Amino acid sequence: MSKTYLITGVSSGFGYELTKQLLAKGETVIGTIRNDKNVQHLMEEYPDTFFRKFLDVTDVSAIQALVKKIFDHLDAVDVVISNAGYGLFGAAEELTDEQVEHIIATNLTGSIQLIRSVLPYLRKQGHGRIIQMSTYGGQVAFAGNSMYHATKWGIEGFVESVAQEMAPFNIGMTLVEPGGARTEFRYGSAQVAKLMPEYNGNPAHAFLSMLDPANGLAPGDPVKMAERIIESVDINPAPLRMVLGTVALDSTIDTLEKRLAEFKAQRELAASTDIVE
C-alpha cells in the first residue's frame, strides 16, 4: 500500500535522494523547498505524486500554516521527514551573532516546530512515523562545529523525549545519524565563518581539510543511506536511532564507551552529594 510523505528540504542532499527514490517506488511526496530549480524534472515526471511547497523553516507561522493546509486536504500523511538543515563551521569565537541565530532557527527551532505542528494531526489519524535527520555529530563533538553540534544535540534530546510521549498513540520516531556522505551538505551548502588567524593550526580549523574534495571524498553513499532510511519506515517498533556509516558507528561507540567510563568513575563523587537520612 502506497504512503504519503512530507519531507522538508528536498532540493538537495538526502531530501532530494529520498524524494527521488520514493517517487520511483510509487509513493506520494509533498516536498518543501526554497527554490524549485533542482526539482523541476520531478514535477514534470511525477505530476500526480510529487507536490512541491515553498517553505522557509525559520518562519514558524509558515510551518504551521503549511502543515494545516496539507492535513486539511489529505486523508493522512504517513511519514514526516524533518530534513532541512545545513552545516556551519568555524570556532565559536569566529561566528557572528547572525550566524548563530540562523542555524538555531533552521536546524533546531525549525525542526522542533515542524514536529510540534504535525503531532495533533498524526494523533487524530491514529498512526504515523516521524524521521528526524540528525548526524553522528549529535553524539560526537568536533572542534570547529560548536553551533552545528548545539543544534543536533538539542534536537536529539527533543525527539527522544517526544518519542516517549507519542508511543501510546502509535506514532514512531527515529533519529537518523549519518556519517560523512557525498552530498551537497559537505560539498556545496556548508557555511564557513570568517576565519581568524589566531586559530590557524588549531583543531578548530581542521574542518578545512574535510571540506576540500582534493583530500578525499566522504565515504558515505547517499543512495544507500536513503534506501536504509526508507526501509526503516516499516520497522516496528520504530528504531529510536539509526547510525549510517562504519566511521560514524565506530566513532559513536568509542565516544560513548569513554563517556560511560568517565561516569562510572564518578560514583563516589555523585554519592557524596546525596542526603543521608
Score class of each variant (00 low, 15 high):
T174D: 07
E160S: 08
V162L: 11
M173P: 06
I155D: 01
F185Q: 06
P203Y: 15
E177H: 15
E165C: 08
M225E: 09
A150P: 06
A190P: 00
L217K: 02
W153T: 04
M166R: 02
F207H: 00
L208E: 13
G154F: 15
G220A: 12
P197K: 00
Q164I: 07
E160C: 01
E177N: 13
G180W: 05
N200F: 12
E165D: 10
L208N: 09
G179W: 01
A163P: 10
F207D: 02
T151I: 01
G157I: 03
L195G: 00
G179S: 03
V162T: 06
G144W: 01
E160W: 04
E177G: 05
Y199Q: 02
S189G: 07
Y187A: 06
G172C: 06
I155K: 02
P222G: 06
V223R: 08
N215C: 09
A163T: 05
L217S: 01
E177Q: 14
T183H: 12
E160L: 05
S146G: 11
V159C: 12
L217P: 04
S189K: 01
E156H: 04
E160H: 07
A163K: 14
L175E: 06
N170G: 06
G144H: 12
A181V: 13
R186Q: 11
A214C: 03
A163C: 08
F169M: 07
T174G: 04
Y148G: 05
G157Y: 08
F158V: 03
G220E: 05
V159A: 07
Y148H: 11
A218F: 12
Y148I: 09
G188R: 00
A214I: 04
G180V: 06
D221M: 13
Y148V: 05
D221A: 12
P222N: 10
K152C: 08
M147L: 15
G179Y: 02
N170I: 08
A193C: 05
A218W: 12
S146D: 03
A214M: 02
S161V: 06
